[in-house]
Design a protein around this nucleic acid. Sequence first.
RNA 1: GCGGGUGUAGCUCAGUUGGUUAGAGCACCGGUUUGUGGUACCGGGGGUCGCGGGUUCAAGUCUCGUCAUUCGCCCCA
Length: 416
Amino acid sequence: MNNKLQSVRGTHDHLPEDMYKYNNIITKAENITSLYGFKPMATPIFEFSSVFKKTLGESSDIVTKEMYTFNDKGNEEVTLRPEGTAGIVRAIISNGLSQEMPFKAFYHGPMFRYERPQKGRLRQFHQIGIELLGAKSEQADIEIIACADNLIKELDIDKSATLHINSLGNIIERKTYIEELILYLNDFKNKLSAESQNRFDKNPLRILDSKSEVDIEILKDAPKLINYLETESKDSFNKVLDGLTNLNIAYQINNKLVRGLDYYNNTTFEFVTDKLGSQSAIIAGGRYDNLMKQMGGPDIPGIGWAAGLERLALLSIFKAIRKKTISIIPVGNENNILCIKLAQELRNKYICTDISYSGNLKKRLKQANKISSDYAIIIGEEEIKNNNAIIRNLETGVQEYIELNNLVKHIEKILT
RNA sequence: GCGGGUGUAGCUCAGUUGGUUAGAGCACCGGUUUGUGGUACCGGGGGUCGCGGGUUCAAGUCUCGUCAUUCGCCCCA
């Protein structure tokens, strides 16, 4: 195999079969989110780097080592978007849409992260997401999670996904908690795993979801974030949980769930699976009440989620719905014009029509069979002479002569 | 970024302790008297064994590097 020509590491070609599957998921997502009032929207694939640096957190892994950043010819520093939320929020500020709250956006498209590729983890991957701006109410949290749950059920992957939910509290509560956590962990600092020791200074919250057994053991008696939430945050979290219960959405409180992006607060959730190895999150999101203000816009709260298209696709079973197809087979070259006109007529009636380009009758029938056409229409000299065409059922092999004038109507009839 | 596995035809894989022109199935193309496909039979094309060094009389087989992929860590969708 000559592998000189290959796509860049961590990027995949989407061949027709993949596209059918991906488009199916995107269409379902668009339909379901529209039931909740989300409107489609798209932002550029790259932004000024500051859009991401400011929002994701200077110490986050995404910003420090995973961004595709470069200077363009005008010497502007730009970055291929590593996620969708920052761009949507930027667009809302840029376009003055903060007058139209609440604002509900649905988006999908490629994202880029320089990571080590693995199954379900690519350098160019695709996300589907929604963002709801301008709603502080827990109703928004509930609705958005319900929407994700709905999508998962629609894709028939609800049996392989579990909803994990947590509350990060507000900024002040989290700050107090982090201080306490550091105080507690300080005694064990040297016993922590190497990664966690590293996180100790950079982002201690992340130590919570360490998989190291030593860390887990140490964390057993660590202070819990939930105990540091004030009444307001606690009530809010309980309202969200209540709402989910009332909607029959099963969840698991996971107080170790800490999202890697700095802009989250209060409700944070993930739909996780155990079927994709270490890539467990398929849909993840949460509340980001400070993001817009932090970006220099008005003080408007937000909440949203993003789903990994490739991960959803790996979990879902999809069979493309094949449309009935007609193959038109001209015999000899004299009837080409007539045949292409006929094909056009059928296509105008929304009937999938294939017309063969070359070969003798045998080869053309073979071709029709290969693309699994339902019927073949054969038009040669003899047929023209008699003003008719052969219509052959490719499944049964039964064929009959139909007058050219009635051909389109006849085909419409047998296809229904 | 760290550690492990894998890499032979378009696809799935065989290739014995390193030894002559590298195989199979599927797929593809052609044929079985040329105006009838799917089945059957016959035939054919296609691989510098991921790439680059090294060891050896001799390497798909051993070794090193590299690229890709995959698993775990990390991170996350």
